[in-house]
Design a protein around this nucleic acid. Structure first.
Length: 305
DNA sequence: AAACATTCCTGCACGC
DNA sequence: TGCGTGCAGGAATGTT
């Protein structure tokens, strides 16, 4: 489940492994990853030396000398795995799409069972214009805690706050797990319209976003099924999840059964008791929408589930 | 065996 | 009526 904490964990580990290492040999699979063919990767990578890896949202930017960057996205099931003494995963590794052997025989594998991931070599100087990166929003670890920026970005948005948080053009890095976790901790009903949150609610969201992500990074991310670190270890944050994948289990705060709903075709988990608007008077005063529009909104929402 | 962590594309509906 | 934008839904794929 590579979301920001998992990608950041991989980035930090790669930062301790690949900088200064020069690619001696490269092999690719014949399969395509998402849309791109991998055929040209070996000739563009062999002979080059890795610098420090960077991350933008859920994308990994593996810079090499000579002005090129190996851009990668883990999709649903992508993994970067790194050789260590006494461990040679070659014999056990299916679905490897890129294998890089360095001059000192250290080895780096990109494995992706479902092939929703992405690998592409681009010129470092042109990264800013890359179609995948160009539209990405700010990094959630750097979002100001007052929530003002998020609030103005969401002005007028009619989609739900949960769906809004998943939009990588708004904030780049939250995925399905952490969107649910953030909203639980901020005590916000995931079905609320994004454009309708109050300033103080945005502030709670903006505070919880980096808090959850940092806590997860500290535990090497969440392994829901297939994510592994470069040393093939699972992440430990799954034990800390408050609502995700806990349908029917008691809320860790109040004991009410956690609910699962589907928004935009994706599961959302929340506590119906902890995550609701407190104080209906203010809410009523704020509701200015014409009756007709409210009606339409309601019927659309009902048809969703 | 229904559900799934990801992004991208299509087409609809709304509003100007 | 036409056009731009926002949003929902589906596709891609293999595993559990």
């Amino acid at each position: 489940m590579p979301e920001l904490p998992e990608v950041e964990t991989v980035r930090r580990m790669l930062a301790g492994a690949i900088p200064g290492r020069r690619v001696a040999r490269a092999r690719v699979s014949r399969k395509r990853l998402r849309t791109t063919s991998l055929a040209s990767l070996p000739e563009r990578l062999v002979g080059r030396t890795f610098a420090s890896p960077r991350r933008t949202g859920k994308f990994l930017l593996l810079d090499l000398d000579g002005g090129v960057t190996l851009l990668s996205h883990l999709g649903m099931s992508g993994r970067w795995l790194y050789w260590r003494p006494g461990w040679n995963p070659d014999e056990a590794l299916d679905h490897v799409h890129l294998k890089l052997v360095f001059e000192d025989c250290a080895t780096l594998w990109f494995q992706d069972v479902r092939r929703f991931g992405m690998l592409r070599v681009v010129e470092t100087a042109k990264l800013g214009k890359d179609a995948s990166l160009r539209l990405l929003g700010p990094d959630p670890l750097a979002v100001p805690r007052d929530g003002a920026a998020l609030r103005s970005a969401a002005r007028g948005a009619r989609t739900s706050i949960k769906t809004w948080l998943l939009d990588q053009r708004r904030i780049a890095g939250l995925g399905n797990i952490y969107a649910s976790e953030v909203l639980f901790r901020a005590r916000i009903d995931p079905r609320r319209r994004a454009g309708a949150l109050a300033a103080e609610e945005w502030s709670r969201v903006a505070t919880e976003i980096p808090a959850v992500l940092e806590e997860s990074i500290a535990r090497m991310g969440t392994t829901f099924s297939s994510y592994r670190t470069i040393w093939n270890e699972p992440g430990q944050y799954g034990e800390e999840l408050l609502v995700y994948d806990r349908n029917g289990e008691p809320c860790r705060n109040c004991g009410t059964p956690v609910r699962r709903i589907v928004q935009n075709g994706r599961s959302t988990f929340f506590c119906p008791s902890c995550q609701r608007r407190e104080g209906s008077s203010r809410q009523r005063r704020g509701a200015r929408a014409p009756a007709r529009r409210v009606q339409r909104q309601r019927s659309r929402r009902l048809s969703n589930h």
